[in-house]
Design a protein around this nucleic acid. Structure first.
Length: 1165
RNA sequence: GGGCUUGUAGCUCAGGUGGUUAGAGCGCUACACUGAUAAUGUAGAGGUCCCUGGUUCGAGUCCAGGCAGGCCCA
């Protein structure tokens, strides 16, 4: 059995080959099965939606999930990973509408709900194939065969069960609120949806400061009087409140104005800039300067002429907001009349003087604050009766003004039709309203204003705030508990948990559950028309029985669930094809229904019906008092679907009660940080409300994947990275390794394929080279790790060193994974492989592998390198699952040391603390530093490493350092090619010492006087340093005072050796003796000869083990002598049986060694 | 406007509890080495540690205020 040797490494092919191996040998399944009975590590998969193609960020998110599941498996836990699909929701509806060329309005008209939902069901899994493919190729291990699917009846039934539980606890209620509404999508939006990335955009809107004319009556009399300025009374009939709005289209719905109770307002006499008419206006005192120019402060009102740019003004009276309360004004745009008294000033605590005028225009139908303050003050909203006889706002659900708003009837309040706004003459509805107000002397100021405004995350069109009826979950009731339990969750990064998520909990509002849509989980609440009686249905069986009652009461004629519930057992065994809703089962990917039925665990046949609309809508139930109850037409927020997955993935509580209990809460979940208020919240909320428990103990919120310039990836901009292409080109391992090692997952990643290439080269390339080196020689020597392990004590210094380093690495990597910090783990592994293993251990020990006989030393070398490679394979397997499995198997197949078929079935190595030797690691560091210093000296003198030198000198200030260097002296000597290391100490008398203050120590002792002390120390001469060392103390005069410093207060090092070539780093100084003796020169020539002959061997295509005969031309005396002196050495190095010096070589090659040129010839023997 | 987060070499990133000469890899330049060879070593160039104040004997690090990017929300 031989170790596999590879000509070229094809990373993508490794991925494919290993994937095939996993499939053929069920490695994933085994990785779960072999841990049966072990402690479980519970992981929840946040379900993706398969209606779009996966992107590179999904590789990131899924790599993170995979890494910790694999790590925990290696650590001996059983990690079940049930996949899942999020199948409901707006994106799917919109996609279907786009494909069918319809809008929400057409549903029920051009297309039936039944057909519409059938299309949704088809569409939602359209890219499932691509998703599964990516999941496999990137090496994300998750159970794709038995995923939970949110549209399955079983799933919906579990969700219903949870809703009923909430209902029974009094957490569900119906309310009427102003909500974000997307006319373009025809639906209300949840706060989660409004929290999608990119919904808030900078827009330039036309804003109006409108003039609301004060009614002159008893209540307002005081406003028309001037206490300070009698002669101005004439203009006072034109008295206006100024109110600013960024949404002029809401002005026709105005029914009140709000002021701040304690805000100061002033009355100002001036002129309207559009009509030039004299006016008197009221606005907040703080904001006067915003509307009136300083330059006009001294102008006389009498001098004003129409059209003057500078408009004079005069401050008249001052009022507090409280004074203004109750003052009435004339309706600004009298299209529709309210049914109760309106148009007066109210107090609002939300009014500020930050912007606008300090007076806020109130349109109760189009703003949350507006709605609240109007209700508190009994101010009506402006409503009209729509075509169905229902009360509705003056803007309809498509975003158009109703016919009652005559001047603007039928106009869209925002650009919902995609009109080109850049064409000349384009006027938005807001602009048209402005023009009208200007003409009527009702506009004080109209200007374009840039601000952020929320947009629908699917249609990119602006959102309106709009009154909607909704069902809510009273999350505020458990707010404190949500906060408390959140503190027990380990967030990665912590700031997301305390900051983003914590603050969100602090400002929690009730969860708006309602969606007026079609494709989703229906709200299982039936109500009488007057809303007095209602029922929340919590299971299919319960619904069945309620229907039976309804039939008895005469509201229904047949029970659509009859077949499913009555004939359950029969249908399951007889294989009846269900006709109630044929398609329901056809697209179902779940196979749990029929299996479980056959097993007799439930009596419901879940393929015989459909809990979606419109079927549930057709069910009419009977109330306790005998009235008809219809289903509340809403669907529930899809986030509830995904937040319910801990339960619903198991069809709990109808099946798998045990399984659920064993798998709750999760040990670990991970998703993008954008899910903070989405999935993370809904999981948490449901778990706290129902279980008084967290839903997850550890959570990783990973950051965004941006393009290499830090911009968001988007298909539209064309900067999106195709994950399939990346994996195909660079392989899954390099892609994953790059993503994880480059930056912590919670930071945003600037994805640059150059980085992937670098990882490939630097890490995988080096590791592979190291393996190839091992395989080449191990195969020649037939090393199969069959010998007993050579005891550490019998191995070389460098063996023990790399083993020590390896064990330190195991500890570090284990700790990093356990702390959910994969980046630290990968960086540690990478540094070990490139720096310690490859660049130092292998480089220094090469000769042990290819030279000499197969003895204990050689075996020790093989064992050491093997152990390093095998350990690395396991440590790195969670991140690079394919390559590391190949490496592991390549090693293991020959040695058979592990009885497992894959690295993923192995056990995570345990660090052997006894093998870690800090002293050893320290002195190897010394060796590396000294070598590096000598190399740099050689370079300075341009003496090549092949030229042996006699000695280096190292000044030694303490015995410990000397002993440390002694232990690695051989390594240094061979690495830098010198014969001897000599140490010089104090007694030599030639050391020049350097003294440096220990600032940390001195600072603590001397504080502000440190500067003087430090200066004195740096000024000490050799003599004084000697005194300090000898006496263990030295007096420094400090002004009138004298202080004593000790050797601990300073750092003393040798700086220079007079007359020598030195280099130093930190405390270490090295001197190099560059005197060349004849012998050294000869040896240098011999080494050069070896080098040239080795090259010749290689060029001639000789095999490593071929023996040769060498003939050399004897035309240089120096060379001849070197050959004679070092013949033995030359023969050994070049595997030559003999070296012959001859006069003439007819057919040799020419060798050049410095100034020598000679002929040479090799013959294989 | 608020919350969170990031800002260190051309690029990607390290820099416990403050300590005086701020590091690594990549890239660039030069040189060397060569039975791991499309590998490797050594050296060099390259820094306003985002800015401004403050605390301190001493600030990349702590504090305050800004600026810029990102995410999330009003």
């Amino acid at each position: 059995m031989k170790y596999n040797e590879y000509k070229n490494l094809d990373y993508a092919k490794v991925g494919e080959d290993i994937l095939a191996y996993w499939k053929a040998n069920n490695i994933f399944e085994k990785s779960v099965e072999t841990r049966e009975g072990h402690k479980p590590f519970v992981f929840y998969e946040g379900p993706p939606s398969a209606n779009g193609t996966p992107g590179i960020h999904h590789v990131m998110a899924r790599a993170v999930k995979d890494i910790f599941c694999r790590y925990k498996t290696l650590k001996g836990f059983q990690v079940n990973r049930k996949g899942g699909w999020d199948t409901h929701g707006l994106p799917i509806e919109l996609q279907v509408e786009k494909e069918l060329g319809i809008t929400k309005e057409d549903i029920g008209k051009k297309i039936s709900i039944e057909e519409y939902n059938a299309r949704c069901r088809e569409t939602v899994m359209r890219f499932k194939g691509q998703w599964d493919d990516l999941t496999e190729r990137m090496g994300y291990w998750v159970d794709l065969d038995n995923p939970y699917i949110t549209f399955d009846n079983e799933y919906i039934e579990s969700v219903w069960h949870l809703l009923k539980k909430l209902y029974d606890k009094g957490y569900l209620y119906k309310g009427y609120t102003i909500q974000p509404f997307s006319p373009a999508a025809g639906t209300g939006l949840s706060s989660h949806e409004l929290n999608q990335p990119g919904t808030y955009k900078m827009v330039k809107d036309t804003t109006i400061v409108a003039q609301f004319k004060v009614k002159h009556n008893k209540k307002s009399e005081f406003l028309f009087k001037n206490q300070n300025n009698e002669q101005q009374a004439t203009a006072n009939e034109n008295l206006y409140f100024l109110a600013w709005t960024t949404t002029p289209w809401t002005l026709p719905a105005n029914t009140a104005l709000a002021v701040g109770k304690n805000i100061k307002y002033v009355k100002v006499h001036t002129f309207n800039q559009y009509t030039f008419e004299p006016i008197t206006v009221i606005l907040a005192k703080d904001l006067v300067k915003r509307y009136f120019s300083e330059k006009a402060a001294n102008l006389n009102l009498e001098d004003y002429k129409s059209g003057d740019k500078l408009i004079p003004f005069q401050l008249l009276e001052e009022y507090s907001g409280k004074d203004l309360e109750g003052v009435e004004y004339e309706q600004l745009l009298p299209y529709v009349q309210p049914d109760k008294p309106a148009f007066r000033v109210v107090i609002g605590d939300f009014v500020t003087t930050e912007d606008g005028t300090g007076i806020v225009h109130i349109a109760p139908t189009f703003g949350g604050d507006d709605f609240k303050v109007a209700a508190q003050n009994d101010i009506p909203a402006l409503m009209v009766v729509d075509e169905w006889g229902k009360m509705s706002p003056i803007v309809d659900r498509t975003g158009k003004f109703v016919k009652e708003i005559t001047d603007f009837a039928g106009m869209y309040v925002k650009n919902y039709t995609g009109e080109d706004e850049t064409v000349a003459g384009y006027k938005s509805t807001d602009v048209l309203i402005s023009i009208k107000l200007k003409e009527e002397n009702k506009a004080f100021k109209v200007e374009r204003y840039e601000h952020t405004y929320p947009h629908c995350w699917r249609t990119d069109k602006p959102v309106l705030y709009y009154p909607l009826d909704s069902w809510f979950i009273r999350t505020t009731a458990v707010k404190e508990r949500l906060i408390e339990l959140n503190k027990t969750i380990n967030w990665k990064p912590e700031s997301t948990g305390t900051g983003r998520f914590g603050n969100w909990l602090e400002n929690l509002v009730d969860w708006n559950l309602s969606r007026s849509r079609y494709w989703g989980t229906p709200l299982p609440i039936w109500r009488t028309e007057d809303g007095a009686e209602e029922i929340c249905v919590g299971s299919v069986k319960e619904l069945y029985h309620e229907i039976e009652k309804s039939i008895a009461a005469g509201f229904m004629t047949s029970n659509p669930l009859a077949k499913a519930v009555d004939n359950a057992d029969e249908s399951a065994t007889a294989g009846i094809v269900h006709t109630v809703l044929e398609f329901a089962g056809n697209f179902s990917l779940s196979n749990s229904g029929s299996d479980e039925t056959a097993a007799g665990k439930t009596t419901v046949d879940y393929k015989a019906f459909d809990l979606h609309r419109p079927y549930v809508d057709n069910i009419v139930l009977v109330s306790p008092s005998g009235l008809a109850m219809h289903r509340e037409s809403d669907l529930i927020d899809v986030w509830f679907d995904s937040g319910a997955m801990p339960y619903a993935q198991w069809h709990y509580p109808f099946e798998n009660q045990d399984t659920f209990e064993k798998n709750f809460p999760a040990d670990f979940i991970a998703e993008g940080v954008d899910q903070t208020r989405g999935w993370f919240f809904t999981l948490h909320a449901i778990a706290v409300m129902l279980e008084d428990s967290v839903a997850f103990k550890n959570v990783m919120a990973n950051g965004l994947v941006l393009d290499k310039n830090g911009n968001k990836m988007s298909k539209r901009l064309g900067n999106a990275v195709d994950p399939f292409e990346t994996i195909q080109k660079y392989g899954p391992d390099a892609t994953r390794w790059y993503m994880i090692s480059n930056a912590p997952p919670w930071d945003n990643l600037k994805f640059n394929t150059d980085g992937v290439v670098e990882v490939q080269r630097r890490f995988f390339g080096t590791l592979h080279n190291t393996y190839s080196f091992f395989a080449l020689y191990a195969n020649l020597d037939n090393f199969t790790f069959s010998e007993a392990e050579v005891p550490l004590a019998n191995r070389t210094e460098s063996d023990r060193w790399i083993i020590s380093k390896l064990n330190s690495l195991v500890s570090a990597v284990d700790a990093s994974y356990a702390d959910y910090d994969p980046t630290k783990a990968t960086r540690a592994i990478q540094d070990f492989v490139t720096d310690d293993l490859s660049n130092w251990y292998v480089r220094l020990n090469r000769k042990r592998f290819w030279k000499g006989e197969y003895n204990t030393d050689k075996i020790a070398a093989y064992q050491t390198l093997y152990t390093c490679l095998e350990t690395i394979a396991i440590l790195a397997a969670p991140v690079a699952p394919f390559y590391m499995d190949q490496l592991f198997q390549d090693l293991n197949k020959v040695s058979g040391r592990n009885k497992v078929a894959s690295v993923h079935l192995a056990d995570f190595p345990k660090a052997n603390k006894g093998a870690i030797n800090v002293d050893l690691e320290e002195r190897m560091q010394l060796a590396q530093t000294i070598s590096s210093l000598v190399h740099s000296l050689r370079k300075k003198e341009t003496i090549k490493v092949r030229q042996p030198l006699s000695r280096i000198l190292i000044p030694i200030l303490n015995e410990n350092t000397k002993a440390q260097i002694e232990a690695v002296a051989d390594l240094i000597k061979s690495e830098v090619n010198v014969k001897n290391i000599e140490y010089i100490d104090d007694t030599s008398g030639i050391l020049v010492k350097k003294i440096k203050p220990n600032f940390k120590r001195l600072g603590q002792v001397f504080g502000p006087r440190l500067k003087q002390v430090a200066a004195a120390i740096q000024g000490m001469n050799q003599e004084e340093i000697a005194v300090l060392e000898r006496e263990n103390g030295f007096e420094i005069p400090l002004g009138d005072d004298t202080v004593i410093i000790t050797p601990e207060d300073v750092e003393i090092m040798s700086e220079d050796i007079p007359g020598w070539l030195v280099a130093s780093e930190g405390k270490l100084t090295v001197a190099l003796d560059i005197t060349l003796t004849e012998a050294l020169k000869q040896e240098g020539i011999a080494r050069d000869l070896v080098n040239r002959i080795q090259n010749l061997r290689k060029d001639s295509g000789l095999d490593v083990q071929d023996k040769i005969k060498i003939s050399l031309q004897n035309n240089h005396k120096e060379v001849n002598e070197a050959v004679k002196a070092y013949e033995q050495y030359i023969r050994e190095e070049t595997q030559a049986t003999g070296v012959l010096l001859t006069e003439l070589l007819a057919d040799g090659t020419t060798l050049e060694i410095d100034e020598f040129t000679l002929g040479a010839k090799l013959e294989v023997v």
